[in-house]
């Protein structure tokens, strides 16, 4: 049951990405290219998601001691800023602005069989693995 739920939630997330326009690289790049012919529509994706998640997340935290299928909630606790966080975010942004895809939309596009999505996801996995090797030194 827990795995079925995880799968359904993943599909919902993917449907949201498809509806929102995040799986269209041209649209994403049009949003990021503020200095070009700016398309502001994708700002509403983050806006809608943050409002819904922000409210629902607080409601869950206030009403429950643990999630349905686990003994405890898993939340990041760090609040400090460091070079890894900012450097990683900077590198990610360059990739996002170059290809117009971030991890979720990349996986959805790969599922749709788009050559772009498949190539992007394959490269992303190599990048993630390389980072782990780099981190271990």
């Amino acid at each position: 049951m827990s795995l079925v739920m995880a799968g359904v939630v993943g599909a919902l997330f993917g449907a949201g990405l498809l509806v929102s326009g995040m799986t269209q690289p041209a649209k994403v790049i049009g949003f990021l290219d503020v200095a070009g012919g700016w398309d502001p529509s994708l700002a509403f994706v983050m806006g809608g998601a943050v409002v819904v998640y922000g409210l629902a997340w607080r409601l869950v935290r206030a009403r429950r001691r643990e999630p349905w299928f686990d003994a405890a909630f898993h939340l990041p606790t760090r609040r400090d800023l460091d070079a890894r966080l900012l450097g990683g975010a900077a590198i990610f942004g360059v990739g996002w602005g170059l290809g117009g895809l971030c991890p979720g939309p990349g996986l959805v596009a790969a599922g749709g069989g788009a050559t772009t999505g498949l190539a992007f996801v394959a490269a992303m996995l190599v990048g993630l693995l390389a980072q782990r090797r780099f981190a271990r030194g």
Binding site: S2, M5, A6, V9, G10, L12, F13, A15, G16, L17, L18, V19, S20, G21, M22, S41, L42, A43, F44, V45, M46, G47, G48, A49, V50, V51, V52, Y53, G54, A56, W57, V60, R64, E66, P67, W68, F69, D70, A72, F73, H74, L75, P76
Partner: peptide, 24 residues
Amino acid sequence: LALGGGALIGAASALLFLTHGRIA
């Protein structure tokens, strides 16, 4: 569409937190 899709993403993320206690 962006707003609706975003709301769906937010709802899915909230469901993952409710069911598995994880960050989406």
